[in-house]
Design a protein around this nucleic acid. Structure first.
Lengths: 182, 182
DNA sequence: CAAGATATGTCAACATGACTGACATAAATT
DNA sequence: AATTTATGTCAGTCATGTTGACATATCTTG
């Protein structure tokens, strides 16, 4: 933990001491921790830039994304997926409804439920943002073979908590199969 | 883009309509997009919980992390890495200084610079949080062979913007030759 | 040396997106 | 009929980001 290879880098020259500090090393997965930070930062950055033109933020993107992807999602499902309070969701959802990106339909069985659907306008927004992110992903996967791609998918799945999965995670992981073994 | 399988999912059944909406498919990498969302959510969630006990937030974690990992980082470097304004950084940095998690040293060459270092107290915090995240990563990588791990690392690197890299990214990617170990 | 540029810090105002708590309404369940 | 559930809303707070203006110390340059 106090394994500082700092002196190693500062002996390089006086004028360099603050220019290129050498990273510490040790028993942690600093590599993956930092790669995840930067990769996610740039990944969501793609969408952030576009969203400004619509006057929306990340919160709107997340709502639009899941409503588009899982048509007929209930408000309660969305709360589970996003892990925010209904008051927080209410604000952005109201905007998206008012501006015609999402429509609500009353549930057929349970008329208390409000099932959410993306309008064509909403679909266009989601598609635009997903296109940017897909471009980045496709670029990143370009030189990776199928086994590598499978490993990436397996890794990301294994990073996700499987206890108490919400509706969307159930869909992603497949309902019933609790173990990704074969 | 208007490839909607909307009607298909909503006619599934009356009793199931809101329970398990079927995801749309298409030309996008929805799989990776959503896996990244959930994986990152749970990855940062590990630290979030611990941080509450310290009265800190994610912003404090990010600052502590990079100061610990790259001892002697300048304030300006930190601004580049975190991509926030000095006013935003100032607030959390002041707290971390006041509470003894970070110390500043005046630069030897340029006495205007404030070089940042983690105190033992700061190191302990970073190690605790990195430990949680490392546990998750180690668990996720457990059943993946070395080629797969290499593919994961390659993928995450390729997801990061390489134009205008900051000091930390230079260290991660190596300025021509240097590779960070482990 | 004087003048300007740079690194940092600070004050004030504001925006977004979280939060808690309280309460309202309609519809389903018991 | 009473209670629970799904949703919506009002009001206040907090964390963390923003812009703009300005101060101070120090380095660089004419």
């Amino acid at each position: 933990m106090t394994d500082i290879n700092f002196s190693k880098s500062s002996v390089a020259s006086d004028s360099q001491e603050a220019a290129s500090p050498a990273p510490r090393t040790g028993e942690f997965r600093w590599d993956i921790i930092e790669l995840l930070f930067f990769a996610y930062r740039d990944f969501v950055g793609d969408a952030d830039h576009e969203l400004e033109a619509f006057g929306f933020g990340r919160a709107h993107h997340r709502v639009m994304h899941f409503v588009y992807r899982y048509p007929g999602l209930k408000v309660a499902d969305l709360l589970d997926v996003l892990r925010i309070t209904k008051q927080s969701l209410g604000r952005v959802l109201k905007q998206l409804l008012d501006e015609g990106y999402i429509i609500q339909k009353t549930g057929n069985n349970d008329r208390r439920q409000r099932l959410l659907y993306a309008t064509p306008k909403g679909e266009a927004l989601v598609a635009k943002l997903a296109g940017l992110q897909t471009d980045r992903i496709t670029r990143a996967l370009r030189d990776i073979n199928p086994e590598g791609v499978a490993a990436i998918s397996e890794f990301l799945r294994a990073m996700i908590d499987r206890d108490d999965p919400d509706k969307v995670l159930e869909a992603i992981f497949g309902i019933g199969s609790k173990k990704p073994r074969e």
